[in-house]
Design a protein around this nucleic acid. Structure first.
Lengths: 215, 215, 215, 215
DNA sequence: GATGAATGAGCGTTCATTCAT
DNA sequence: GATGAATGAACGCTCATTCAT
């Protein structure tokens, strides 16, 4: 453990950083302000983090590892893929909907640069997509999900939809319960927006493109 | 004609800015580098823009106004809502898939801060959502789209899915044709991921939440 | 020429730097103070120099190149090696004795670190030793200087003596004319400190060691 | 015995400091690195020294007092001034030639600033010059050294020459035995660089000081 | 309009020193 | 005496912006 004395100080710095990053933005955020808000001296920051950037990266690494793990565990409560997707979505929206500052950091600050995005994608998001992808695969095997849709596309639609819901909520500053949207969102993803009986013209294209698309 | 030369400089500055913002990121981008790449003096930038931020904002305002307008026109080629959504999606993916630097700016750099995000949402994205929303409403009226799903939710799923597709493409650096994903993505949105005949348990929740969720 | 506009500004910065380095020492010297004393903005320094260290290095490179050149020219006024050594010594002591701040910079600040010392040795001092060495060689050829003393040793004694005279003068802060010591110092170097007729026991050792000694 | 352990720590700190100062330079040297190398905690340094500067000053005061004392004793082994100068020179070169790190500290680090230089001059160097000066005076009284040369000049030439030899050796990093240069250097100082019988053109200056002719 | 030299505010980080344990 | 976590003052440098030419 690289930590010196108190995990308490480390936690206070991270909490302060969430507030400051969310209110000022990563670049405009001042290390001195984070320190002041955490109740430590400026230099103390550097006993716990390598620098300003390491604070942001640590926020993401440490807090989110927990959430992916938790989503993975929570979904075990049910068996079928559709239900599991619903639980994951609920957890996703609940976790970010519970703390707007944290949501700002995740929806906005962590996407500052392609550098952060790549890191974001490579670690947390990668594992998240793996989790969702495995549930989708399960659904296709058990017959609850269409097998003619590329798994990656479904995963991206799933994540993209949730991500947009969170971003809208963060930016809109309206005070509704984000987690309540999990059910409708997953229902839409599963049943589609088309009216029953309506024919959709996407079929041909779909079969052509099936299997394509990297991440 | 002086006017013409000026417009040329302005365009060159914006084009240079796209390259520099995409490669360095907004904060790390140097005004001097944009000027050099545009072939103008540093000070000349300030004859055309109020400052660095104004370049980014102008990029978005000017280039994207065109895309929303074009998407609106292109969709007139077909009548029914599902087809129109497909055309809009194709245009969305084609426009960003044609220029990765531009895509980086839109997917990453323009989302630097809540300030940019809010401006982004208020102008271009607002009109884009209005466009998509009106098509969805049309679909609900004409019976091609389910009427029991909140329009805003469908619009967010539509945009969120496309946005995630673009972001994945940008970050992944793999060289596939983004526009080919429009058909499968819209098909998924319309028909859903659930296998035919599978019952989804989201119904009850959906009806409870129907009508909720602002942005 | 890397310089932008005015050589005047560059010169003013160098002159200010001599004062500040001499009074505060290199490390304690503040770039802001140099700028203020030169009458330019802090940032202007960086239009003319790569950084604080480059100011010190430039001081040395630019001002001293001139002195070596001048010493080389001045000594041409006479023919025999002893006279030439006297002229070089006079120039050395006159140049540094004319400006105590400059002397402080050369005797003290430029010797901050082995890094500076090595650079110092490699460029200016190297050429200076070459100059002195060539005069000594001339003297040995023409028969005015002993041939049984390693040239490098004589050169080091020559430089070391002058260097110590300057350093003593700088540190002592007494107000005598440094250049007046050139004659006596060179006389001592040439004729030695021993009384005529006194036998010195160094001979054997000398011949053993003759030819040794790197720099 | 606590006293013994303390002295041991103090010595270890000083030894560590020589290494660190020599390798990094005084300013770049980190107190923490000295502590680590000495095997004590950072704070422990301050139980033995007032601060970083005090370590350097103490190094010089304590280690060099010993050397001056020893040089003074060693020269008693012989009687005449020339021999005594030779012994002092040998001791000077041997002491510094035995430990390059120590030599770096003395030739380079201790000359960082006029402040150090003045202190250096006032204490150790002052006593060293007194010692050398008294030997020169003795030589002039006993008739082995010319009486027409200012004692201080001879002392400065003596020290300056040795100092330059040490500095060259330190900077040059060549691996010859520094102490072997004592003989030739003192021989040069005593007998001069001029060839026997050669008339030196310094005569005019010399005759001012009532000097003698060439040998 | 165009230039580019000049400006100067602004800040992340280091590290000598302290002091509670 | 010894420790080492905590402190916080201090500063070189960058770069968006200005303005005299």
């Amino acid at each position: 453990m690289a930590r010196k004395r108190s995990d308490d100080k480390r936690r206070r710095i991270l909490q302060a950083a969430v507030k400051v990053f969310a209110r000022k933005g990563y670049f405009a955020a001042r290390v001195a302000e984070i320190a002041a808000r955490a109740g430590v001296a400026d230099g103390t920051i550097y006993l716990y983090f390598r620098g300003k950037e390491d604070i942001l990266v640590s926020l993401f690494d440490e807090l989110m590892a927990e959430h992916v793990e938790r989503a993975s565990q929570e979904m075990q409560a049910v068996e079928d893929a559709p239900s599991r997707l619903r639980l994951i979505a609920e957890h996703h929206l609940r976790a970010l909907g519970a703390d707007r500052d944290l949501a700002v950091v995740f929806q906005v600050e962590l996407r500052q640069s392609t550098k952060f995005m790549e890191r974001f994608t490579a670690s947390w998001l990668g594992r998240y997509f793996d989790l969702v992808g495995s549930v989708i695969e399960q659904g296709q095997r058990e017959g609850t999900l269409r097998a003619d849709v590329p798994r990656k596309l479904v995963a991206k639609a799933f994540f993209g939809t949730l991500d947009e819901l969170v971003t809208s909520w963060v930016i809109g500053r309206k005070d509704y319960d984000l987690a309540l949207l999990a059910g409708p969102a997953v229902d839409l993803l599963l049943r589609g927006a088309a009216a029953a009986g309506a024919s959709t013209s996407g079929r041909a294209v779909l079969s052509v493109a099936a299997g394509r698309g990297g991440r």
